[in-house]
């Protein structure tokens, strides 16, 4: 809990993922994936469609239980490492892992404020009896959760929308509301699954600022994103997945220069990718159409089927 612990242990890892393999029947969605997420960093996971990014997220949050490997979690400074495998989703959340979804999953018939309050209130204690009787501590908790939720909405820039139904908010605001709800659970690390999907350039800029701000406030950010511009601008490190395996890891500059990554995105062999890298001084991954090329192969179809089983 103390700052001393953090500084005393520079290799304090939030996630320590060792050789995780996740299969759905005969389809292997993740193959011996290892990654380390350090405290205080923004780590991005990229890869073509069907590479297993969301499967990785679901494994980290307890939705899926990988057959092999080990995932150790130490969400908040000073925590003992806990294995995520086999834990229920809400338990993993209580351990300090919050997440958003690729396709927004708010509670659309609740107001924006209520959405965030649901998150905040999972950390509260009062039960049904005290709620029915309106006991003092329940009222106090109610007030606390409301003011915390307002503060969070303010933080993501939705304070003026507090009493609107979540489902009636514009798309970009729904994305931010989902982040606010996730932050409401007071996480040590937040997993963002394609937070920029479907947002316009202006919203992307706001989002990048928000992600940096959240990270600055001491919450680790694990990010899945297709928008390379956003990834390159916010991420401290990047892990690249393809066909369920980790093919590269490094700083944004390293990743941009990695032939294997370029090959995966172009759907070509590494030699051609090297040639491509030679012709351009500054290859720009973000201009490559990430939604097209590499999804056609049978092995890429596998993880997608797996995801639908959820």
């Amino acid at each position: 809990m103390t700052q001393a612990t953090t500084t005393a242990d520079p290799d304090d890892l939030i996630f320590d993922v060792q050789d995780v393999t996740l299969r759905f029947g005969g389809v292997t969605s993740l193959q011996n994936v290892s990654l380390q997420m350090r405290r205080g960093e923004i780590l991005a996971v990229i890869g073509p469609n069907g590479a297993g990014k969301t499967s990785l997220f679901n494994s980290l949050t307890g939705v899926y239980t990988p057959q092999e490997g080990q995932i150790l979690l130490r969400a908040r400074p000073g925590d003992q490492p806990v294995s995520v495998l086999g834990q229920k989703t809400h338990v993993v959340n209580h351990l300090g892992v919050a997440r958003t979804f690729q396709n927004i999953r708010l509670f659309p018939a609740l107001t924006a404020l209520e959405n965030v309050k649901v998150g905040v209130e999972t950390r509260q204690k009062s039960g049904p009896v005290s709620a029915m009787l309106g006991l003092p501590w329940q009222r106090r908790e109610e007030r606390e959760s409301t003011s915390q939720a307002y503060a969070l909405l303010d933080r993501v820039g939705l304070a003026g929308r507090a009493n609107e139904l979540a489902g009636s908010l514009p798309y970009g605001e729904q994305r931010r509301l989902e982040i606010a709800r996730a932050l409401g659970t007071d996480p040590g690390v937040i997993l963002l699954d394609e937070p920029a999907a479907g947002t316009n350039p202006a919203e992307k800029q706001e989002l990048a600022a928000l992600i940096k701000q959240v990270n600055h406030d001491g919450v680790g950010v694990l990010l899945i994103e297709h928008d390379m511009k956003l990834v390159m601008s916010v991420a401290d490190r990047i892990v690249v997945l393809n066909f369920g395996s980790r093919i590269a890891e490094g700083t944004p500059e390293q990743i941009q220069r990695d032939p294997a990554v370029v090959a995966a995105y172009l759907g070509t062999s590494e030699e051609e990718a090297v040639a491509e890298l030679d012709t351009h001084d500054q290859p720009e991954l973000h201009v490559i159409d990430t939604s097209g090329g590499v999804t056609g192969a049978g092995s890429a179809g596998g993880p997608a089927t797996g995801e639908e089983q959820a």
Partner: peptide
């Protein structure tokens, strides 16, 4: 509304 999202938000469904 959404059981999966509720779980992920820490609600013991």
């Amino acid at each position: 509304e959404d059981e999966v999202a509720a779980q992920a938000t820490g609600v013991n469904t």
